[in-house]
Computed example of a mutant assay.
Amino acid sequence: MRHNQNSYTVDEALQKLMHFCAYRDRSQKEVEDKLDSMRMIPEAKEKIIITLMQEGFLNEERFARSFVRGKYRMKKWGRIKITQELKKRQISSPIIKLGLSEIKENDYLSTLYQLAEKKAEMISETNTFKKKKKLADHLIRKGYEPSMVFDCVNDIID
C-alpha cells in the first residue's frame, strides 16, 4: 500500500530490485544507487542487498564476467577501458581480475589486429608517421595496452 509515489515497503522495494537484477546482471553500486533513488533508509538497503545476494540476484563476480564479455564482444573494448569502467562501478581488483579471465589471450590479439586493419583502411592520411599515430591513438582510446598497440600498428603499416 503506497502512501505516495516515493515510499516503498521493504518487500515492495525487494520485489522491484529482484526485477531490476533479473533483467541483467547489476553491480552492488547500481543496486545501492537504485535504492537511494527509492529513498530507502540504510537499514532497509542493507537488508535488501543481503537478501538479493542470498537469493542469487546480486553477484559481483557474475556481473564483472558478463560486463567484460559484453563490452569486449560487442564494443571491442580493450582490457584497460574495461578495467576503468569496472572500477567506476566500485568492483574490487580481485573480482575485476576474475572478470578479465573471460577474455582469451589469442582472441584478444586477433580482435586488436582486426580492429586495427579495419580502422587503418578508413584513415586517409598519406604520411605514414601520422597514419600510425592516428591508428595507435584510436586503439589506445578503445582500451588496448600501448605496447601491444604499437607492435600491431607497426605490423600493419609499413
Rank of each mutant, 00 (worst) to 15 (best):
M1C: 08
R2G: 02
H3G: 11
H3A: 02
Q5Y: 11
N6W: 06
N6Q: 11
S7C: 05
Y8M: 04
Y8R: 04
Y8C: 03
V10D: 08
V10Y: 01
D11S: 13
E12T: 02
L14C: 13
K16C: 03
L17D: 01
L17P: 14
M18P: 04
H19S: 12
C21I: 10
A22H: 06
A22R: 11
R24W: 05
R24A: 08
D25R: 15
D25V: 09
D25Y: 09
S27M: 05
Q28A: 15
K29I: 06
V31M: 06
K34V: 08
K34A: 15
L35H: 11
L35E: 10
M38L: 13
M38H: 06
M40P: 03
I41L: 08
P42L: 05
P42A: 07
P42M: 01
P42E: 01
E43N: 07
E46W: 04
K47Y: 07
K47T: 13
I48Y: 05
I48N: 10
I50Y: 01
T51D: 10
Q54E: 15
Q54F: 11
G56D: 00
F57Q: 01
N59W: 06
R62T: 12
A64F: 09
R65T: 09
F67Q: 09
V68I: 12
G70F: 08
G70E: 12
G70L: 03
K71T: 02
K71C: 04
Y72D: 05
K75C: 06
K76P: 01
K76R: 05
G78F: 00
K81S: 12
K81Y: 10
T83S: 15
T83W: 06
Q84P: 10
Q84K: 13
Q84M: 08
L86D: 09
L86Y: 13
K87V: 12
K88P: 09
K88D: 07
R89L: 15
I91L: 08
S92T: 10
S92V: 12
S93K: 15
S93Q: 15
I96L: 04
I96V: 13
I96H: 07
L98V: 14
G99W: 04
L100D: 14
S101E: 14
S101T: 15
E102S: 07
E102P: 15
I103F: 11
K104W: 00
K104R: 01
Y108I: 02
Y108R: 13
Y113T: 09
Q114S: 10
L115D: 09
L115C: 12
A116Y: 06
A116D: 08
E117M: 14
K119R: 13
A120Q: 05
M122E: 10
I123F: 13
I123G: 14
I123M: 07
E125A: 14
E125V: 12
T126L: 15
N127E: 03
T128A: 04
T128I: 14
F129V: 15
K130Y: 11
K131E: 06
L135D: 07
A136K: 08
R141A: 10
R141S: 13
K142R: 08
Y144D: 12
P146Q: 01
M148C: 11
V149E: 04
V149G: 11
C152T: 11
C152G: 10
C152F: 10
V153I: 14
N154Q: 04
I156W: 03
I156K: 10
I157K: 06
I157T: 05
D158A: 00
